[in-house]
Design a protein around this nucleic acid. Structure first.
Lengths: 145, 145
DNA sequence: TGTAAATAGTTTCATATGAAACTAATGTGT
DNA sequence: ACACATTAGTTTCATATGAAACTATTTACA
């Protein structure tokens, strides 16, 4: 990032801006795909993705694992329950919680989205060398503190 | 990005997700600052930043340079006009357009935000080596197609 | 020229989002 | 056991956002 120390700021060289534009472009393009094919919103996709990895989580676990606030999780969950892609069962030990898991239908959609998502990612990474990919991984890790 | 070829998808390793979470965290943190200090919204900041670089642009020029849609630009501009940070003068050649530029007050706020923004960016980059920064620049460029 | 298509920018309207308030249940200290 | 504080999750409400429709003007070209 040359130019960084100048007193002038070029927006198109400014890291927060560049990251934001790139991330939004990518996320939106991916979301358009699963939205069109499966009628799934972005928050709903995140919930599906996490429950596909690890079943039987509470809404709060999803908050931790999806980087969304509890309102967003609550809404995503209720949307997915409505679509019958996940189900809520009572937590015996804590009546405030419910345990969430994919229904067979949810699992089916999950199984259909994952390859599309991975191939989308492959497409992105196709522009990068193996070293680039490694660097990117490390840099994202560092920036994530 | 190891794990990329597996059929399973770990959300926290998925590039669109990682980028989105990181970019949003960063943008939000920065926005909290100029929001608190200057009462400026994110779209408004982008408009100020561009007009600070290059004066006398049309709203459409701003669309190109801020990666925002014309509705967002229109609203940001009218907000900034209300705050008297920018002014609109008629374009003689085309009555549909207006030429936008910073007012003295706008320039003053711009001059106050820029160092804060640059130091924010410095803070981010402080976690990275010089090579990292160079790599990041190149990778963002490649991902931006 | 006169008329259709294109462009600049605004407004409308429906949806997304998030902070704060709320409900219900659990945990804590006495 | 009994308040008081905390936590899980939902609802409310005010604001942000964006697609589509709209207005005004300019461009293209018959």
């Amino acid at each position: 990032m040359p130019d960084v120390n100048k007193t002038v700021l070029r927006l198109d060289r400014f890291l927060p801006y560049r990251l934001s534009v790139l991330a939004n472009r990518i996320s939106r393009s991916l979301a358009d795909q699963y939205q069109a094919e499966f009628g799934i919103s972005r928050p709903q996709w995140r919930v599906l993705a996490v429950l596909g990895e690890t079943d039987n989580l509470s809404a709060n676990d999803l908050v931790d694992r999806t980087a969304m606030d509890k309102v967003a999780v609550s809404r995503a969950v209720s949307g997915l329950v409505n679509k019958q892609l996940i189900n809520q069962s009572d937590d015996k030990k804590d009546k405030r919680r419910s345990r969430l898991s994919l229904t067979p239908k949810g699992l089916q959609i999950y199984a259909a989205i994952v390859p599309a998502a991975l191939s989308f990612q492959q497409n992105l990474l196709a522009n990068l060398s193996a070293e680039d990919i490694h660097h990117l991984d490390a840099i994202l890790e560092k920036l994530g503190n």
